[in-house]
Simulated scan of single mutants.
Amino acid sequence: MLAITQRAYGGPEVLEETEVERPRPGAGEVLVRVAATSINAADWKLRSGQLGEFGSMPLTLGLDVSGVVEELGPGVFEFQVGEAVYGVVLGGANAEYVVVRAHTLGRKPAGIDHEHAAALPAAASSAWQALAAVGAGQRVLVHAAAGGVGHLAVQIAKHRGAHVVATARAVNHEYLRDLGADEVIDYTATDFAEAVRDIDLVLDLVGGAYGTRSLRVLRPNGRYIDLQGSDAEGDPRYERFYVEPAGVTMREISTMVERGLLRVTIDQVLPIADIAKAHRLSESGGVRGKIVVTAWNSLS
C-alpha cells in the first residue's frame, strides 16, 4: 500500500510517498481503509522532532482518520466490514490503510462526509475531554479560539451552559460569536489578562508565556488546562492535558454533530500529494478550523 513516510526529522520536505506493507489487524483491532485525515499541531511537531523521538524510522504520521472498515481482527463484534468509521489513532493515518483499536473508534456521524469527519477526532476529543468538568454558569476562557481545537471548544463549552470568552484576531470575531462565544478579545490589540476576570477554566491552546498571564484571570479555585506546554507549570491550578482516544468520546461527538449542536470548520482540503503544503499551512498559524487531507481512496 501507499503511505506518506519520513526517514528523518526535519521540515515538510522530509515527507515522501512510499510503498509499504499493508498491515493486518490483531485481536481487538480494525483495519480501516482511509478516506481522509487532517493536520494537527502534533503532526508537524512530531515530524520536526520537537516532541522527541516517536517510534522508529521510517515513520508514518497522522492522528485523525475517517474511512471504511476493511477487515476485523479477532474479537471485534461492534463493527462490520464496509461500515464508515472515524477516530483518533496514535500515528499511521497518512496511508491507504491503518490499524485502529476497535474501542477507540466511532461510527462516522450521519449527514457529513469523510472530509468533515476527518477534521473532528483529535480536535473534538481534546475539547470534549478537556472541558469535561465545565457546568452551567461557569466562565470559560478559550485561547486561539478560531483554531482546530478552539472553535470546537467554544461550541462544547457553550453547549454545557458556560459563559464563553474567546481570544482571536479581529477577523474571526463575528465567526466566533456565531459559534456561541459571549465575549471575544482581539489579542493583538488588548491584553486579555487585563480585560477579563473571574474565569473558572482557561483552555490554553497557545502555551508559552500565556500560562502565567492566564493564571491572573482565574478565580482562586479555577483551573488552567494547557495543551501546548507553558510557563505556568508548577502552579496548583495547572493541568497538562493529553487527549485519550476513546470510542465513547467519538459517540458523544457524533451525537452532537447529528443534532446540529457541533459543526466543524474546514479551512482547506488538499490531496495527499500536497501533504507537505498542508504541514506548512498548519505550522504557519492563522488557520480557521482544520486543514483536511484526502487520501488516495475516494470514498465520499
Rank of each mutant, 00 (worst) to 15 (best):
A84K: 15
Y97G: 02
G91F: 03
E71N: 01
D113Y: 05
A110Y: 06
K108E: 04
A122W: 14
A118G: 05
E70Q: 10
F54P: 02
H103S: 12
V69P: 05
R107N: 06
V81P: 04
P109Y: 08
E53D: 08
E96W: 07
V76P: 08
V100L: 00
V81C: 06
T104S: 15
L105S: 11
P109H: 01
G75A: 09
V81M: 07
A119I: 02
Y97N: 02
G87L: 06
D113L: 09
G75S: 07
G106H: 07
A119G: 14
H116T: 12
Y86A: 08
G62H: 02
E96N: 14
G111E: 11
F77R: 15
E71T: 01
P121S: 09
R107M: 10
G67Q: 13
H114K: 14
L63D: 04
A117C: 04
T104I: 13
G91L: 06
L63Q: 09
V88E: 06
A119N: 05
N94T: 08
L61H: 02
V100Q: 00
R107K: 15
A117K: 11
V98C: 00
V76N: 02
A93K: 08
E83K: 05
L72A: 12
V65F: 03
L120Y: 02
E71G: 10
P74D: 10
V100W: 03
G92S: 05
V68S: 03
L90T: 15
L59H: 01
G106S: 04
N94S: 14
A122V: 15
S56V: 14
E115M: 05
A123G: 15
A122M: 13
G55V: 03
V76T: 09
Q80K: 14
A118F: 12
V65A: 07
A119V: 06
L90M: 14
G62Q: 06
V99Q: 05
L63I: 00
G67W: 11
A124S: 13
G92T: 08
P109W: 08
V99S: 06
G62D: 09
P58V: 09
V100M: 05
H116M: 14
L63C: 05
H103T: 11
V69H: 10
R107I: 11
H116A: 13
R107Q: 07
V98K: 04
N94L: 11
P121M: 07
E83Y: 12
V85Y: 00
D64W: 05
T104R: 15
F54N: 10
Y86M: 11
G82H: 12
F54C: 00
G67V: 12
E71H: 10
R101L: 13
P109G: 06
L90H: 10
P109E: 09
G55A: 01
E71F: 03
D113C: 09
V85N: 07
Y97E: 00
G92M: 03
E78D: 13
F54Q: 10
L61P: 01
G75M: 03
G91M: 12
L63G: 10
G87R: 08
G82Q: 01
L63A: 10
A84G: 08
A123C: 12
L120I: 11
Q80S: 14
A124M: 13
V99F: 05
F77H: 11
G92L: 00
G92H: 12
L61V: 00
G92K: 03
A110M: 12
S66D: 11
M57H: 15
E53R: 15
V100R: 13
A110K: 05
